[in-house]
Nucleic acid binder design. Structure first.
Lengths: 221, 221
DNA sequence: AACTTCCTTACGGAATTCCGTAAACAAAAA
DNA sequence: TTTTTGTTTACGGAATTCCGTAAGGAAGTT
């Protein structure tokens, strides 16, 4: 089993919960932190000390408070850690269950497990730790289809940007001009109309308003 | 201090945290539940047994799972309890920090305290319990302006309904017809346009799409 | 080269939204 | 009763969105 683990969540209760779960798994050394920056610094220091952490379990959303933070979210932290310390295994433990987010974290940043907080959260977390120790990927049931399906929700960065601009109050004409200025293609009004039409069909939206509402509900923007 | 308290949160860790906080406050009898329906049933039974709970501490958002629930959210539960058992004191303990939500819960359903989950969550919760015991209202710092400000955001139920319909993909014409059918006034297309225009100005929105996006971000719909 | 195929752009008309002005109506005040 | 005030409704034109059709261009294929 892992020897040295760090857990990160801004809520004390959650940290305690993880602590007891890891205790039952006979993990000797567990460090709890409440800020992403602390997690980063401790992980970095441990590497310099030649006693690196083997596993990080972290939440995604952290409340802002008086302390200014370099990493504002768990995702920021994970991104940085993946680049700097690819050896460190990472388990995400979050209330969020958006497929898109899971896919991004696992595929882009190589998170080894994604556990949804919930009534069975601690049980699943414990299973996840065991799986990851055996180098197996672990996903909570609710998000398990995040990878296997090609998940027809083929919606790319361009689409996201487009809908975001729309939600920010720009007219399709304004978006067209903006895209022309920034060399984003396609940029013609006609293409933008066409793309939005495709998205409306894909998300079964009656009109642009409906589309924005749906996409916001899905957490895509 | 309170003798008999019930705490409700779908996450075990949170329930445990509340339990220890209440223990430090010398509360003798604390019942933890993980479903709103369970909270309701236990509260009801306790009243029938002539040994009612004095205080409920509850989260707002509960994950759905296989068990079908009558009350899907903490707000549903609070609404029902306020009507049926006005004697029961209620503390909300939630991650949400939307002013609007706080105001609604406190003013409409007479919640006695609103504590935001966060790094100081358990400390504040403990203070809240003490305040409520002394019949004082308690609000976390982040949401303390929820009441004092007359908060000119004068937006009524009609406005909410209107924007909701819009977000659901109905055209202004369809909304007009719907309102006519349901005897909701005003119902003319012209009036609906006018009202939406007022809301756009109020929320500094460029157009209807922008309005819906803003109102969704504020958590009003 | 000739030919698909896919993507971008253009265009036009119908529907809807946007926005100002004004009439119709009701309730309260003079 | 008349006046005032505020709300609802009506109307018209400009702007934008919606939607189908088609032209232009950049790939790769035969």
């Amino acid at each position: 089993m892992f020897k040295k683990v760090i857990v990160s969540d801004d809520l004390v209760s959650m940290n305690l919960g993880m602590l007891t779960a890891l205790e039952t798994l006979k993990v000797k050394e567990v460090t709890p932190v409440q800020y992403c920056d602390d997690a980063y610094l401790k992980i970095k220091k441990a590497v310099l000390d030649n006693a690196p952490y083997e596993l990080l379990i972290t939440d995604l959303s952290f409340k802002k408070d008086h302390r200014d933070q370099k990493f504002e979210s768990g995702e920021d932290l994970i991104k940085a850690l993946h680049e700097e310390f690819p050896e460190l295994k990472i388990i995400v433990y979050s209330i969020e269950d958006r497929i898109q987010k899971v896919r991004r974290l696992v595929k882009k940043f190589h998170a080894k497990a994604y556990v949804c907080k919930g009534r069975r959260g601690l049980i699943e977390l414990s299973e996840a730790v065991k799986s990851v120790y055996k180098n197996e990927l672990y996903l909570s049931d609710q998000v398990s289809q995040a990878l296997n399906k090609k998940s027809n929700l083929e919606i790319d960065d361009y689409d996201i940007l487009l809908v975001k601009k729309l939600a920010n109050g720009l007219s399709q004409d304004q978006i067209s001009q903006l895209f022309k200025e920034n060399d984003i293609s396609p940029s013609s009004l006609s293409s933008i109309e066409k793309r939005l039409n495709k998205l409306r069909i894909q998300f079964k939206a009656n009109n642009a308003i409906h589309l924005v509402a749906i996409v916001k509900d899905l957490g895509l923007i």
